[in-house]
Design a protein around this nucleic acid. Structure first.
Lengths: 337, 337
DNA sequence: CTTCTAAGGTTTATCGTTCAACTTGCTGTT
DNA sequence: AACAGCAAGTTGAACGATAAACCTTAGAAG
């Protein structure tokens, strides 16, 4: 494969000059030379070697996308449709802006360190929910990163958040408006801060407005995954003291419906359900899922855009975006008389 | 960040010696020195810089995973649950064996070339269906690659195939056994060779055994995606001259069910459907999908394993595996009287 | 007529590793 | 005593690019 020196030799200039042309360096090269060099590059099918570039310039044009390891039994990262949509948005934007993407699930801290120093990653997109001390570990590395999912209470940190509290509120309120008074909350375990905390806060607020208590027995924690939620659905089918469920992810809602159905309880006739995310599967379940809509693909793409803008020193770029949500009514909620 | 020279200076040896220890080079270093160097590496949190390593040794430890660009409107690559499962298997294996994964959708040939020479990829996992001339283009590059989906008629090429023809046969035969006589075939356009060709051949064979003709009007080509298949479901609802559908992917079957239902035709009472893949969504649809099972996650992981074995010169490694399939009966097929 | 400046380059060092070719000191053999 | 052979290193040149500092020439300015 041709190197920059080959080009230089053929054209009869120094490697630096070729390098300047490649990187579009300002004004150092005459217009006709630019044309000749570009022509030769094309003729010889020259493509710069980014490993070499990375080595000297310390910028790799690789963005790492990491997620906390989700054991395959629990569904796995790539198999989760939410993350699939996120990745789709991220990849499209990175491609368009000339960056490469290295996806990796991270289990232990050394793995993160290896990833970073192995490849001089330019930046990191952090998806999924990491243990709470992870954020400070990450800050200790001097790599720009943007958080999706694992919120942090700081205006300065790069984040693409969602109006999660509002989402939790709207979902719950919708059920209350339809006459439901005992509403279960099902989602991954609630941490001190982050997505789930906020959705839970919204749930509590809605209940409070109707003067209803939040009851421990109504809060269920489970891993994201169809198996887990189907199992929970089977379990819940035995309880007779509630009429509705707010599930913090569509995939959970889908599993719940499936489990409830299997146990002979019908949705929405006996039990109403509201989901969260509005993924494709929300239209696949039967009944179709009433859920909180967010544009996940766009969220990934906004995250990538924000990160790259910061990397490219665009100081006017936003650091903290909150994306909108809305309630989408389909058929999984029944109005009680 | 510490470099190999820092380690060398601290220990008081040359960089080469450290390098030899890191790479486990045979016998050139005394046991006690090995211990001291390893200790220092750990103390200083040294991690080798793979860009530098790649540059000189011409092996990057990066495996590219490519897919032909699927426009987002058509579903996108990452959002397709089949590819999600595949990626899950691939990533797990690559991680375990110490490789990195660079995922990229490829639109034009220059993009492929850039990807390859930018990063000195060690190998390529090719998923999805590429245009037919792509295979020869790929061969022209001297990068080892393994095909999943885009079959090629050559025993020598690395491939992880599936008993696709048998799958198509079993699916169709199951419908025939249940009394169906007019069975539509729905899937992405059939090419000269590859997955779809084989599934179609199986379909034809089963029909032939029952003395039934293959009719052009019964073959539908559509892009993989929920939108497309839902639309097709709506369209098919108007036809009254068939009782069953064989869909070559679960995601298509799911959309078909949804479209048919929407148009007021019920599955399986009026129309029976058999899918292919047995993805998670097969248990989400209502009715649950009767489908051809394959272990997609494992398929990804087998592909990665085979490729790495070849890279690591394990000449005994298999080059061409055919993974098994089986029919899973759920509730989307009705026995006709 | 000298000096300055800008355009259009070139030279050389460097990034962090690896690899091939040396060196050095010791042991054992004949 | 001479020397082969080996263990345990070292040295210096790559790999392909970039960055900083330097050079050369023509014309403008004084």
């Amino acid at each position: 494969m041709a190197t920059i020196k080959d080009i230089a030799r053929v054209v009869g200039v120094s490697a630096t000059t070729v390098s300047n042309v490649i990187r579009g360096n300002p004004g150092r090269v005459s217009p006709e030379m630019i044309v000749r060099i570009n022509q030769t590059i094309e003729d010889m099918h020259y493509v710069p070697n980014l490993s070499a570039r990375t080595l000297v310039s310390n910028a790799s044009h690789i963005i790492g996308v990491i997620n906390h390891l989700v054991p395959p039994e629990v569904g796995g990262f790539f198999q989760d449709p939410f993350h699939g949509a996120l990745l789709a948005g991220i990849e499209t934007t990175l491609r368009e802006r000339g960056y490469y993407m290295m996806v990796r699930t991270i289990d232990t801290e050394p793995e993160l360190l290896s990833l970073l120093s192995n490849w001089n990653l330019d930046g990191l997109i952090v998806t999924g929910i990491f243990p709470s001390d992870f954020y400070s570990r990450l800050k200790a590395q001097s790599v720009p990163f943007i958080l999706i999912d694992s919120y942090v209470d700081s205006e300065n940190e790069l984040q693409v958040r969602l109006a999660d509290k509002l989402g939790g509120y709207l979902a719950t309120q919708h059920l209350l408006e339809n006459g439901h008074r005992r509403i279960l909350f099902c989602g991954p375990p609630i941490q001190a801060q982050g997505v789930l905390r906020e959705r839970f806060d919204g749930y509590c607020q809605a209940l409070a407005e109707y003067g209803l208590p939040v009851q421990d027995a109504d809060i269920y924690g489970l891993e994201i995954g169809l198996e887990q939620s189907t199992a929970l659905g089977l379990e819940l089918a035995r309880r007779q003291d509630f009429t509705a469920i707010f599930a913090t992810a569509d995939i959970l809602a889908a599993g719940l419906i499936s489990g409830l159905n299997e146990a002979g309880r019908s949705v929405p006739e006996e039990i109403s359900i509201v989901g969260f995310d509005d993924l494709n599967i929300a239209r696949l379940t039967s009944p179709k899922l009433t859920t909180i809509h967010q544009n996940v693909v766009q969220r990934g793409s906004v995250a990538a855009d924000m990160l790259l803008s910061v990397l490219e020193k665009d100081s006017g770029a936003p650091r903290n975006i909150v994306m909108p949500i809305s309630l989408v009514q389909r058929n999984s909620v029944r109005k009680l008389p």
